[in-house]
Structures are given as C-alpha cells and as structure tokens.
Design a protein around this nucleic acid. Structure first.
Lengths: 142, 142
DNA sequence: TATTGTTATACTCTATAACTATA
DNA sequence: TATAGTTATAGAGTATAACAATA
C-alpha cells in the first residue's frame, strides 16, 4: 500500500501525538484565568515591540479583536502603548516587566510538567526526542 | 545546572515545536466554519456512543456547554440522540454517517498536508520522527 | 434525595462595519 | 485617497444557576 514510508500511518500518528501533548501542556498556566491567546500575544511581545497591526497579523486575528486583547493586557499592566513618533497613526506596544514575569512563570510551569514527564524516560528515549525536535520544527515551519 | 539532561532545553524546545506543529495542523479542516471543539466531539463519538455527561467529562466542559455543541451537531445531522431504555434519564448520542464522513475528510486533509511535509524529509529524518512518536504519546498520556 | 439532561441568562472572544486621525 | 487604530454591534462558545424528569 504505502510506498516509501517506514510506517504507513506516520502522519496520522504524529498528528494525534502532537495534539495530545499540546492539550496537556496547554492546561499548565501561570494565571489560570488568563486565556491562551493573551499569553501568546505576550510571548510575541517578548521578542520585541510590535504595532497593533503586526500583532493582529501574527495571531491571524482581526485588528479590532486584537485591540480588545491589548486593552485587557494593558489594563492588567502587562504591556504599554506608546504613539509612534515617526508615524503618529501607529502605536508601539511593548511588554512590561510584569508581563515578562507572567510569561516566564507560565513557561516555567509548563516546562516543569514536561520535564517531570521527560525525567521518567530512559536516556535513549530522551535522545530520540531530542533528535526529533529539530525535524518537527522544520516540518511546522515549512 | 541541569544534571541528567542531554539538552538542557529539551522540554522548552519540544514544547515550542509541538505548539507550532499543532497550530499548523489545526488550520487544516474539512469544514472551515466548524469549530475545533465540534470536530473533537465527533472524533470521540467515532470510537462509540456516549451520553451527554460522558462527552462533557471527556472534553472537560460543563454539561450545558456540551449540550449546545450537541444541539448544533444534531441539527447539522452529524449525530443522533436516543433515550436510554435502561435508564430513561440518559440519552445515547451516536455519530451518523455524515458525521463519520466529516471526520474522515478532516483527518484526510490534515494528514495530506502533513504527509506532504514529511515527504520532503530524508528517510533518516522520517525514521527519527517515527521513533519519537510512541515516546511522545507516552509522555502525553502519563 | 440524587442524578441526568435541559433551559435561562450572562460573560468572553472574535468578527464585520463604521468612524477618527494621520499620511 | 489610503492606512492605522479604534469604537459599535453582533455572533459563537462557555459558564453558573435553576428546572424537569427519572432513579
């Protein structure tokens, strides 16, 4: 049936495994009431300031929708808005220290759960995962 | 600092790779207007009939919320409700042929995208992924 | 009296359309 | 006239509280 594949169902099995894993990871949050979408925005801002439009495009969400998310995060003190001096139509959105702390705490919790799980594996199994990670990234980024 | 780990950031890297991959996969749907939660319910029903409470618990959602989802899927013809003859408080929810078709089509599309991506890899890379899949599943199910 | 499912109602997140300010 | 951001409004999805039917 399948021609070149070592496992005919590699795609299906990889899909299911990835969905299950992220589902478990998603459940680990620093602030349980905070929606996942908000955390993703903060994670993006951690890599540098963005305009509203850039954030909206990065999350594949409409500008009004992103505006609401940004409003909530601004009110909570996790980011700041500053008008762009070059083009005053634009607004520069930057993460605050509180936002950075929140992100780090969230990632720490998620990784703590995952590290626990990985610690139960044999060294060979961990090596197999480590070998797979760059390939997974390559597939996801293609 | 890290003691036993081959890559100190294996957990963080695996987390990011898994999130990216599922994000891409989630974008592939058979019916674009259908919410992801609805598809997951149908996927559960594909493994056999369930009561409303079982579905709600499986998705970690409240019964009223699941009821709305089930209403929508029933109206669309993707599942049926039948009273339980043993315990008439219960309702047996079963997937229809239309629902099965929808699920298969969705999985086919998602896997088609993934299979395309996997086809670009070398046999060694595919083998590395195939070796990682059961370990990923073990981690996710722990 | 407890359990299963459902209805009523409110809140959150997202979208489209319309508006303001700037280029 | 076009663009960046915002406001107004509406449509999903989920939650809590209250209710009906059955055990």
């Amino acid at each position: 049936m399948a021609s070149h594949q070592e496992s005919p169902d590699l795609a299906a099995e990889l899909r299911m495994a990835a969905f299950r894993l992220t589902r478990r990871l998603r459940a680990q949050r620093a602030v349980d009431s905070m929606p996942d979408g908000h955390l993703v925005v903060l994670a993006t801002l951690q890599r540098g300031p963005r305009t509203l439009g850039e954030l909206a495009e990065a999350e594949r969400v409409t500008p009004p929708s992103m505006n609401r998310t940004v409003n909530a995060l601004e009110e909570a003190g996790y980011l700041t808005r500053t008008p762009d001096v070059q083009d005053r139509r634009k607004v520069i959105i930057e993460i605050t220290d509180a936002g950075r702390t929140l992100i780090l705490e969230t990632q720490r919790r998620r990784d703590a759960w995952l590290e626990d799980a990985l610690a139960d594996l044999s060294p060979a199994e961990r090596a197999a995962l480590a070998a797979a990670v760059p390939i997974l990234r390559q597939v996801a980024d293609r």
